[in-house]
Structure formats: structure tokens, C-alpha cells
Amino acid sequence: MDYFLELFFGGLTRGSIYALIALGYTMVYGIIELINFAHGEIYMIGAFTALIVAGVCSLLGLNLISILILAIIISMFYSAAYGYTVEKIAYKPLRNAPRLSPLISAIGMSIFLQNYVLLAQTSDFVPFPSLIPEFEFMEPVAHIMGSSELVIIVVTAIAMVILSLFIKFTKIGKAMRATAQDRKMALLCGVNVDRVISVTFIIGSALAALGGVLIASHIGQINFYIGFIAGIKAFTAAVLGGIGSIPGAVLGGLVLGWTESFATGYVSSDYEDVFAFCLLVIILIFRPAGILGRTNTQKV
């Protein structure tokens, strides 16, 4: 039973991170039908920003909790600024171009950001301080779930709830839903679509940065390339759950995390990815739009 619980919580942690990143993919796709390949890089930039902030703060002698909170807040702002800028530079000028053009622009942005960090920082792996403190009350269950895993799961859950409320009850949230449904009609009704798109990028990027800080602090190392694999997995999660759907991204992330964890635990870690992608294929065969995705019939 212990073994099952260990795998369950391991999968839940991993799934939460996938979900945080997947939200960015799914929100952007929902609104402008673009797969933002540079999203994984925003996650990586979030982690690097947090590393720099943590370095400066520990020089100033702050305690661990305040460093963690400061690092999260600053890196969320910084990554949000990156997300906003990337959209303005790489996607906005192509808004009326064929769909393939912004996709290629996104891949270009991803390569650019990776190499930018490679040159500006380092190509090596760098140690990331573990910012999440070891809670004493977690000690009896430390072999099943560590403090950092607990923090990751709780923070992710809170972020999801806030995001759902934001989209449901605020004015800009309503505008986002309207734009997702029909961009032209929203425009006609007086929604500032440009602003909605910017806000989407800002929120998605901030969530990715949150994921970046949490996972880097959990794992203890980062380099310029971490965004690529995390991005691919999160994208898979978004597709699995139904791209464009926010609860779908969360569900997709968790399902993917659990699949990988249990496949490793009960079968073999050699086949971890095989199982993850088999699951994706099976789900897409039976529900082509993903678990919670809705198929929109194209009206001509």
C-alpha cells in the first residue's frame, strides 16, 4: 500500500507541474488557436529568474520562506513580461497570416530564447537552492511525500482555483471567454481583443514561471534546455485533456503524471514515455478532441 501511495503522490506532483505549464498552452490555443512553442522556454526563464533572485536574497540574509515568496513573485512578473513581449514581437504581426506562419514564428522564438539563455547564462547545469523548507510535521511521511511535493500540490491547486474564479467572475475573464468563442463577434461587441490576448499570455507565462520555480527547487538543478522536455510533456497533457479547455489541461496533466508514475512503478521505467503516448493515442482515437474537449463543427 505504501508503494502505491508513493507512486500516487509522485505522479500527482509531476502531474501538477505538467498542469501548470499546460494551462498556458491551452489558454493561448483556446483564444488564438496557436500552439505557443516558446511556452516551455518561459518556464525555463522563470526558473532562471528565481535562481538569480534567490542568490541576491540569500546575500541579503532573508529567511527561506520570504526568499521563496519573493522568488516566485518576481519570476512570475518577469516571465509574464517575457510572454507579453514574445506575443507582441512574434505573434501579433502575424495575426492575420496563414496559421502555419505564427507556428513557425513560435518555434523560432523557442530556439531564440533557449540560445539566449545559453549565451547569457551558461550551457552547464547549475544548482538550484531548495527554497522549500522541510516541514517538521512531514517527517513521519517523508519517505512517501516530501515537503516540496506537498507545497507543489497545494500551490498548484490554489493557482487553479484562483484562475477558474478569475475566468468565471471578472470582466476580463468574461472577455476572454467571449474571444475564445468567436474572436470577430467579440470584437464587434466592443471587446478589446488585443488586450485580451495580451492578458492571456501574461497569465499563462506567470503560471509557467510558478511551475518553473517549484520544480527547480524540488529537483535542485536547471539548465537552458529544461523547457523543451517539460514543454513537450505539458503540451501532451493539454492535448490529452482537450486543448482549449482549462479543466481539461489540469485533468490531462494529472492523468499524464499518474500514467508515467504507475508505468514506471509497476512495469518499467524504460517504457515510461511509451505508456504516456500510448494513452494519448488511445484517448484521441475515442475522443478526438481530448477528454474534456468539445468538437466544434465548422460551419461553412
Binding site: G10, G11, I215, I219, E272
Partner: peptide, 10 residues
């Protein structure tokens, strides 16, 4: 390059 290795460690 996987996000974490907790499952294999378990």
C-alpha cells in the same frame, strides 16, 4: 531530462 525521477527511486 525527465521532470523528476521519484517513481524510479521508489
Amino acid at each position: 531530462g525527465a521532470v523528476d525521477y521519484s517513481a524510479v527511486v521508489q
